[in-house]
């Protein structure tokens, strides 16, 4: 018989929730991705989101429990060759991957598997965007130029310096940390961002490529801070990874939500 890697994921939660989860109330908000069919208004059910991104230490625990996700065993369809390449070995972190740094160089498949093993899932883009719209005091701080400037200042930092440890930034309105200024983060439905690789011809190309309704329109062109995240995610395939791309997990509260 053949071992089915994802079957392994049915293992119950392994205590991989790190900093723990916080509950977000859900509700309606305006997404920066204004799809034709939604007009950009999104309604979210309450959900739980990890307070901090998953760390190297947590991910190490995961690959020790589920060895098929170790870098020398994972099939290349699930993670490209540089998967966890900054670790000292398949099962040791080393100096380039400190325990409390966010784990990066992980593919979408690996991130999804981690969350499943933790009895959770990756957050949807809308959940992530909703949580990340907050600052320390407001649920939606996106109209504040200071909020935007702060996000942009991360883009201005060269990325060849070591990543900070998780949990260094102040908690936002919901109690979530590090949504901005530390790493990019995978979302469950990152592949649903039908963003053209050449966004200048957005409308025309989307119609050719994706056919039918629901073309994306980036109405809120001012909100480039978030759009750059969209650009990054839309450049990725599920087996891809980068030295700045990590993840955190989410859980539905109401089982009935889609």
């Amino acid at each position: 018989m053949r071992l089915l890697p994802l079957a392994m994921l049915m293992v119950p939660a392994l205590g991989l929730a790190g900093g723990g989860y916080v509950t977000l109330p859900g509700g309606s908000y305006k997404s920066v991705l204004a799809y034709e069919d939604t007009g950009g208004t999104v309604t979210l059910a309450p959900f739980e989101l990890m307070k901090r991104p998953v760390t190297n230490a947590e991910f190490l625990k995961f690959v020790r429990r589920l060895p098929q996700w170790q870098r020398d065993r994972v099939p290349s369809v699930f993670a490209e060759s540089r998967y966890l390449a900054h670790w000292a070995s398949a099962t040791a972190l080393g100096s380039a991957a400190l325990p409390e740094q966010p784990v990066v160089m992980v593919s979408w498949f690996a991130a999804s598997a981690y969350c499943e093993a933790a009895g959770a899932r990756l957050p949807t883009w809308n959940e992530w965007e909703y949580a990340a719209a907050a600052d320390a005091t407001r649920a939606d701080a996106r109209a504040d130029p200071a909020w935007r400037e702060q996000i942009l200042s991360w883009y201005a930092k060269p990325s060849n310096q070591p990543l900070a440890e998780v949990g260094q930034s102040p908690a936002n309105h919901y109690g979530v940390q590090d949504l901005h200024g530390l790493v990019w983060e995978w979302t469950e439905d990152y592949a649903s961002m039908l963003v053209s690789a050449d966004n200048r011809t957005q409308q025309e190309q989307d119609r050719l490529q994706f056919c039918g309704a629901g073309a994306i329109a980036m109405d809120d062109r001012e909100n480039y801070a978030v759009l750059m995240r969209v650009a990054l995610l839309s450049s990725m395939e599920a087996a891809n990874l980068t030295s700045n791309l990590g993840f955190r997990c989410a859980r539905s509260i109401d089982e009935g939500t889609p």
Binding site: Y35, D37, A191, S192, G214
Partner: peptide, 8 residues
């Protein structure tokens, strides 16, 4: 393959 469920 990239896909997204629409409201309708």
């Amino acid at each position: 393959v990239r896909y997204r469920a629409l409201a309708d």
